[in-house]
Design a protein around this nucleic acid. Sequence first.
DNA 1: GGTGAAACAGTCGCTGA
DNA 2: TCAGCGACTGTTTCACC
Lengths: 175, 175
Amino acid sequence: MENTEDIRPKRREPAALDAFDRKILAALAADADQSYAALGEKVGLSPPAVHERVRRLKRSGVIRDVVARLDGTSVGKPLTAFMHVEAAGWGKSERLMQIARFPEVEEMHSVAGDASMILKVRMENPQALEFLLGQIHAVPGVHGTKSYIALSTYLDRPVQADVTVGWPAVPFSSE
Amino acid sequence: MENTEDIRPKRREPAALDAFDRKILAALAADADQSYAALGEKVGLSPPAVHERVRRLKRSGVIRDVVARLDGTSVGKPLTAFMHVEAAGWGKSERLMQIARFPEVEEMHSVAGDASMILKVRMENPQALEFLLGQIHAVPGVHGTKSYIALSTYLDRPVQADVTVGWPAVPFSSE
DNA sequence: GGTGAAACAGTCGCTGA
DNA sequence: TCAGCGACTGTTTCACC
């Protein structure tokens, strides 16, 4: 059965989710500004039942957080770019991690492929990009960078909770 | 809460935001599960005043939406990747846009640089990636792809609303 | 933009399946 | 054990200063 000592807010195992959970997750990922009554109607559950499930999903870490997504241009950051960073040996150095402190940096992933790290950045203008590149090149071990400036964004949505029936197809052996 | 129906959901001008607006945006981008009373205390405004501003910010499109961010692993998608697509001429074809219909595809940007399009995808396993690659290569005009599989994600946060004074003045202060 | 009050939704304990 | 019901509590939201 389930382990009930989930005091720690983060749990990164694939959770056991039934069809109700997946419907709730899909609805909240699309719009978190919904009342439990509205959610309940959509998924076929009473408001308190939905509330209890959402509470569980948050506590177990399936729902990481609920956030307002802002329009980059409106907040003065019309320029989005992906930056590939090539570093010696392996990418994760404490020094490189300091780059994450810039509010312009939204994502930072170590990757397999001919780059050590991929960053997603959003900023005001090319000058800000130039400055950030300077900061990154100043990190010991960094060989080079490649920047890809976004011209148009055709899709930008959060993680989708698929509500297909047979899911999850294969790999979970949990309970 | 209520989801205000947007008559024109997209408006992409830089909005005129004062210090209160920026504080509210920063707070909501970090955690949208706050009462207007709590927000008001943080920014120094009464609950109704905050409510009115949030309403305005949503209606004007500064706040695109409010969503629950899900943990990829928990919903059965532990594999994140960035895909660069090289296409003939220019990347945006109706056929390529169909790729966005897969729930695995979360972002899709046309870019400047030696790629036509960058996709952020999240999926169950390498087989799903292989399938998606097949779909993309089947699109007329696509020359090739390069995939970068994320090994670790060190940072993943929404657009930040900078609350520095005099914003947006000089890009950065030194570190 | 602040204040107070009405309307509403979120929350808790209980009952029944 | 878990979903539904109903009462209480807190938040949202409106009219007015």
